[in-house]
Design a protein around this nucleic acid. Structure first.
Lengths: 154, 154
DNA sequence: TTTTGTGCAAAGTATTTGCAGCGAA
DNA sequence: TTCGCTGCAAATACTTTGCACAAAA
């Protein structure tokens, strides 16, 4: 079977771009940290471990390119930085996120929960949906578990 | 009946803050541009028309304060700036947005369409939802209308 | 040789912070 | 007088850009 990186290489070629060593290193970092929601700086530091000559600007340019090709999605959780998430292969839509306001953890929901809602929006607002962003802010199971334990102790 | 600005004043006082002239001017600008999704810079320029002495830093500080008090919600549509939306009084949740990728218009959906989805997330992921952000990117009715007209002409 | 991609440094934006002065309590 | 608030300027943080050079087609 064809590897994920091979398929990304083809996507680049189809759009007339090359998979240069720098781009490959960047993509590999993203593949190795699938659910990490890395910022450009995070990616840069990780890529630098394997390919120390790489420049930060190249990482930014690569991430921008991958965003254009919809290999990754760019997302912003409200701290000042953009984060980059690999899109699941074949996923019609970007996945959802759960951001914990206690511990800062970000969990992913791969299932598409918006089918019905999107139908309503398309019909009622006459809006052709191409993409979406859905993020819930609240308290994750780890933190509410801890709170329960704390209560028990007292 | 008590005015909206009066109620905001009370909210400030309850949290031990004053409604200074600068803060009042800022709030008034927000009230007068309810659906405009203003950036801090936008607010600053509008406030300056009424109160030219005001500084940009004060606007940033005021918007931060209002965000803390949940008078406004801070949102980011993926261009590098934060935008500030007055929260509807009594609204349990932040409203949703439709961002047009053709013309850049941002429309609001005040209805809460996420009730069922939130129930699923709370149950299935054991996550206590406190707030949400939902934005659809696509083509608005104005732009798809124009496209249809363009097609007719040819 | 033409084009594409890269690293570095500089430039841009957006936002935050330090600080001296001001004004209300 | 005290303390919160402000304006200004400087600092910071993130991202983009210009440019000379390198690599690939």
């Amino acid at each position: 079977m064809e590897s994920r990186i091979e398929r990304i290489k083809k996507q680049l070629h189809n759009a007339n771009y090359k998979l240069t060593p720098q781009r490959e290193a960047t993509v590999r970092v993203l593949l190795e940290h699938e659910e990490a929601h890395l910022s450009a700086e995070d990616v840069y530091l990780l890529v630098k471990e394997k390919a120390p000559e790489i420049g930060l600007a190249t990482v930014y340019r690569t991430l921008e390119l991958l965003t254009e090709l919809k290999v990754v999605d760019k997302i912003n959780f409200g701290d000042g930085v953009s984060r980059f998430d690999l899109r699941q292969e074949g996923a019609a839509h970007f996945h959802h996120h759960l951001v914990c306001i206690e511990c800062g953890a970000v969990d992913e929901i791969q299932e598409d929960l918006l089918g019905d809602v999107e139908q309503i929006v398309e019909d009622r607002w006459n809006f052709q949906i191409k993409d979406h962003r859905l993020t819930f802010h609240g308290i994750c199971w780890r933190c509410s578990g801890e709170a329960a334990e704390d209560a028990e102790r007292t």
